[in-house]
Amino acid sequence: MSLIQNLKLVHLPKSKTSNYSHLLLSVFVLLVAIFCLAPVLWQLLTSLKVNADISAVPNVYIPKRYTLAHYTELFTRRPFLNYIFNSALVSITSTVLCLALGAPAAYALARLRIWGEQVILAGVLIVTLFPYILLFLGLLQVVQALHLGNNYLALIIPYTAINLPLTILVMRSFFQQLPRDLEDAAKVDGYNIQQILLQIVLPMTVPALVTTGILAFIFAWNEFIFALTFITRESLKTIPVATAQLGSSSVFEIPYGAIAAATVLGTSPLVLLVLLFQRRIVQGLTAGAVKG
């Protein structure tokens, strides 16, 4: 303690520099915030502008008129409700499936000594590094062989799989931190593994499941290449693909306002998740990447 106090004493006379560094820090903080927010806010502002302001040169930063027309257009002239539904359905289903498959595997890898554990873990780690472009051709053939084209399953199955490595790594590091005593006590009381998992471990696991689930949902919601390749029917498309194709749908005039509105709609669930669960997302990401 005295060391820290001494240290502060040493630094006291330099209060002028500390004032400067305070100012410098504030400037940096502001820059970070602007850097991260500006593109999102600009898209939001564009989505609320009338067309005349969108195509005004020089740009309009503080519009006098605002409109929701670009949003209503998405729902009246395009099946945007459909896209939202598709994205939500595919993301939620795959997230639940991923937790249901990944958590037990993570438990086994953390708690039980199984043969080939190191190999499995190494495989899971390597697989997180695969870009999806390496997989789409093989998966396309699986989809065709199973006649899953234009079927939600063509997305749900790969989305579940691409989130499994992260789920296994995060959940495994969680199980390793969980004290064993309760499980051992239950074992002594004659519980079998299924009972231990369902009645004792599962209730304690809920926070970790939420953390992992949020990450899995984000990845599923954002996925592009599989959704682009395996789904061609308009009514089954997900938001990222449908929005990306808004621009190319009309040859003469690119609907900038509608694109901006669609971007805002497609990103808003994720913005909400980040606002609500910032800490969990950070925990999950670092656990998944660093602990591995």
Binding site: V29, V32, C36, F224, P240, T263, L273, V274
Partner: peptide
């Protein structure tokens, strides 16, 4: 708050933000 803002870009769909950047 700033930490929350700072992870926002990572969480948003790449395809959608690519549109936003094309617009910028």
């Amino acid at each position: 708050i700033v930490r929350t803002i700072a992870i926002l870009p990572w969480a948003l769909p790449t395809a959608l933000m690519a549109l936003a950047w094309a617009w910028i």
